[in-house]
Amino acid sequence: MDTGYLDIVLDPLRSLRILRCDRCVNSILEKKKIQLTLSLLLVILFISFSLVAQTIKPENPIQFKIKNAGITVDGTISDWMVEVDFDPKKLAQSSIQGTANPVSIETGIKLRDRHLQGREYFDVKKYPEIRLQSKSFKTNGKNTFIGIFELQIRAVKKEVEIPFSVANSEKQRKFKGEFVIDRLDFGLGEKSLVLSDEVRVYLEF
């Protein structure tokens, strides 16, 4: 740990000759170091666990699955961000919001991806963002919750219910949820004999 800044704190005291004895200084310094280390830990914990919003760029992409001609197509949207301000003890004050860039959609077939970006689906030129904004939360068992979110795809805003779990580890917290939307509700394509209306979406951050 870089303690250089301690000298800056202590220098005025030294100059006032309050701290003359090196041993005393060292002892005070050690105490201060411990106190500061604890304070820093507290600050970190506070940032992690309190209602201070945290912006995350998740490692894992948003995943989705949809049945097409009897085959399940797996797709991802890799460019997305989440702002989390979530305290299980203060659900009323908590919030989670995210944005995703539909240009980063991938389904394994480039032409299909371009089609999905086009006017018939996400229309990325006109609607460059998919938005998700929490409205309320309730507990659903140990470390599991149900959130009511407003999901905006294209110009359509619609409430969706997302059950999710929160796993706390020493290093971080993991949110994991999944939900189903009807793509037609959001103007994504049209009714099809082969393409399912239902899309299952998986989020992990």
Binding site: G70, I71, V73, L193, L195
Partner: peptide
């Protein structure tokens, strides 16, 4: 038939 679906042919050449 399965390859036809997997390759995404159904998007444009949609049955029936």
């Amino acid at each position: 038939r399965i390859i036809f679906a997997e390759q995404g042919c159904v998007t444009c050449h949609t049955p029936p």
